[in-house]
Design a protein around this nucleic acid. Sequence first.
DNA 1: CGCGACTTTGAAGTAAATCAATGGGCGTGG
DNA 2: CCACGCCCATTGATTTACTTCAAAGTCGCG
Lengths: 242, 242
Amino acid sequence: MNAFPLSPTQISDILSRLGYFRDLGPATLRNLAQGARQITVRRMESVFNKGDPAEALYVVVSGQVKLYLSQANRSEKVVALVNHGQSFGIASLWLGLPHAAHAMAKSDSHLLLVDRQTLIRQARQDSLLAECLMTDLSQRVMDLMHDLESCTPRSSLQRVSCFLLQHRPESGLGDYDILLTSTKRDIAAKLNLTQETLSRMFQHLSREGAIQVQGRLIRVLDSHKLAEINRLQCPPGEALSE
Amino acid sequence: MNAFPLSPTQISDILSRLGYFRDLGPATLRNLAQGARQITVRRMESVFNKGDPAEALYVVVSGQVKLYLSQANRSEKVVALVNHGQSFGIASLWLGLPHAAHAMAKSDSHLLLVDRQTLIRQARQDSLLAECLMTDLSQRVMDLMHDLESCTPRSSLQRVSCFLLQHRPESGLGDYDILLTSTKRDIAAKLNLTQETLSRMFQHLSREGAIQVQGRLIRVLDSHKLAEINRLQCPPGEALSE
DNA sequence: CGCGACTTTGAAGTAAATCAATGGGCGTGG
DNA sequence: CCACGCCCATTGATTTACTTCAAAGTCGCG
């Protein structure tokens, strides 16, 4: 986790290209950049731990960061996988509370850290920035709700089918592909399953002809059948075998 | 779910007494009141369903509202129990997305509905209101994280002890009481357990001398032992019996 | 007092975790 | 180019914690 000095101009440049910061005025961007710095984190390195004070907003410039709760069991619950252009740490930052989860780089990453005071001061001045942050927070709430939805059903088959259905493109009703954003182990942890169980469920759905698995690529062949399975909470036994 | 006409003055009065709206200027309050109306909902009546368009911010004036995901099993996952002075529906409102959960009154309730357009327009104008909403959203994110933390551990004993520890008053290290905000059935659903399992876990912790249960009142006698149990993921068997 | 909602208790079945071992993919280095 | 190690994924056998089903018990309240 090394500091990586960049000029404010470079930083404001990076900021302006980052998703929801796009609409901000140049003045705000410049001010934010003043209170920002970039760091690099190596794969598997910790960014912060649960309970650490929240001192900055983290924006992922490159790489991927995993947010997770550790369960003392040595099992962990993955809360989110944060990719390029997304941010994390905003909620605890705004409330001035310690972080509620651990953050760890899944691959070598560049992160932009926007200082707390700077961000809050700017948000008060620029209502456009406040809107950006609200949108981000709202999105996070929705994500967490979806997460709860997909990780709480009793049956593991339901959890998996629910997860697959959530990734259905909003437009079409037909088939679609999902490229897993992380290892199956982490996806399993997100669904509160073991990697073994996830593997078995994928197998089951494959046998049913609902999906097709090729490494990280999941091909959903029959989303209707998937929805059916999800509704019926069909146990992983033979119930739906033809 | 009946409309309940009140004068804008009355409404702005109610608003001003509601937690995070307290700091708002009278002008903003008046404007919000213009776009607000009050409804009454009877116990067990639905307020909105998952998938409904989000048209207003809901503020609980009296009563209690349960937000939950239904699992097709006929089991449900309680996402939140919203009490007097708290709001719900803000995330989907802001994003213009359909509601992500069902809302149902747990007791006869009065709700204040602030119209979407009104709220958004005011939030753009009054940065103080924007801050209120951000604080609310941040709080909701933190709540959801805590929820995930307490409903995802494998062992039900861990889930319960984690829940009890989360309600520890921030100040003291000593004993404390918890008055459950709803039925044990709903608390169980919040922890993703059945009421039966919750009952058994309470019993187990009682036998250990860690807690004492009197109806909805949980007396935590030995939070240290509780933390110990939580760390050790002690299975509900006889492991810790002396 | 007696009804309904909530809670507790018991017995049984099962889904998923755990343990353990093999297999595949990929990069490093001989 | 193959050999080795590492990590990820798969598969099988075993165990058990939790749900489910069923019934009795408690509480509050009209």
